[in-house]
């Protein structure tokens, strides 16, 4: 009898990566290591790593204080859109997963009055907003893209979400996840995108639904969204739990 494996390769990939990094770091001396007498990369349990994590949390609070809900990300003309648009995910493009848009449902969980799952067609009945904005990657590169879809604020109000809750968390069917603060979730340019470049999203760009949040770094704009949860519990995210700055506002 063939049993389904309890743990898949994707489940342990982050841990494997972490271990590999630690091995790499232990393997060689670095200028940084010499100067600071320790190799601190957020994965050890040293005091310096604890201080770095504390600084990350401090920076999250500073960024939340700096966030001005009425300040808009710069918008561009269609002629400024970057082509070809660069694919980016925690996996290579050939591993992109897709679902049948007809079977797909968006689950809504947590502090919301109406937990009815949403279909793509029903999402299209809500008011739509378009934007041409700069997607800025935490790696430093950036590109300009065009998205349209439902403003997250309108969606949350429609679902009867508790808008005083602290976080909105996103879970994706490609095993990605992220979460954002409520103030950024309610920003007028934060949308649940259904279209990319005036066409319905294709799998590599996050079909059938992705978050597009130009007031945060690119990795916060989760693709292939499966469920949205409104919560007061900090859930972090795929990259955030490994040490990437959680707030990541721009």
């Amino acid at each position: 009898m063939i049993r389904k494996p309890v743990v898949s390769a994707a489940d342990i990939a982050p841990d494997l990566n972490r271990l590999r990094r630690r091995g790499l770091l232990r393997g060689g001396l670095s200028l940084g290591g010499l100067a600071l007498l320790t190799g601190c990369d957020l994965s050890t349990h040293s005091g310096v790593d604890a201080a770095l994590w504390a600084m990350l949390r401090f920076n999250d609070r500073v960024q939340a204080a700096l966030f001005n809900p009425s300040r808009m990300a710069e918008t561009y003309p269609v002629s400024a859109v970057t082509t070809p648009f660069r694919f980016n995910a925690y996996y290579p493009e050939w591993q992109v997963r897709s679902v049948d848009a007809v079977d797909w449902r968006l689950d809504v969980a947590g502090l919301v009055a109406d937990k009815t799952p949403w279909t793509v067609d029903r999402l299209r009945t809500l008011p739509q907003e378009g934007q041409i904005t700069r997607h800025i990657c935490i790696e430093g590169w950036s590109q300009i893209g065009q998205w349209s879809g439902v403003p997250l604020a309108a969606f949350l109000r429609r679902a009867g979400a508790d808008l005083r809750a602290r976080y909105v968390a996103f879970t994706c069917f490609d095993d990605y996840s992220t979460s954002i603060d409520m103030a950024s979730a309610l920003h007028p340019q934060t949308i649940l995108a259904l279209d990319f470049g005036q066409q319905p999203l294709t799998p590599e760009w996050g079909a059938p639904l992705r978050l597009r949040i130009p007031v945060k770094l690119g990795f916060k704009s989760a693709k292939n969204v499966r469920s949205i949860e409104v919560t007061n519990t900090f859930t972090g995210g795929y990259w955030e739990n490994q040490g990437y700055d959680w707030f990541s506002g721009v």
Binding site: R21, L24, L25, G28, L29, S30, L31, G32, A35, L36, G39, C40, D41, L42, S43, A51, L52, W53, M55, L56, N59, C137, I138, E139, G140, W141, W239, Q242, G243, Y244, D245
Partner: peptide
């Protein structure tokens, strides 16, 4: 810089601090 070099060279790992991008950013904004 090494995460997305805008010039045709990268800094060797022994010259850098943080071990990987997230660690480097934590150092940089700390």
């Amino acid at each position: 810089y090494n995460a997305s070099p805008s010039l045709p060279f990268q800094f060797p790992a022994w010259m850098t601090l943080g071990g990987w991008l997230a660690g480097a950013i934590a150092w940089h904004i700390g």
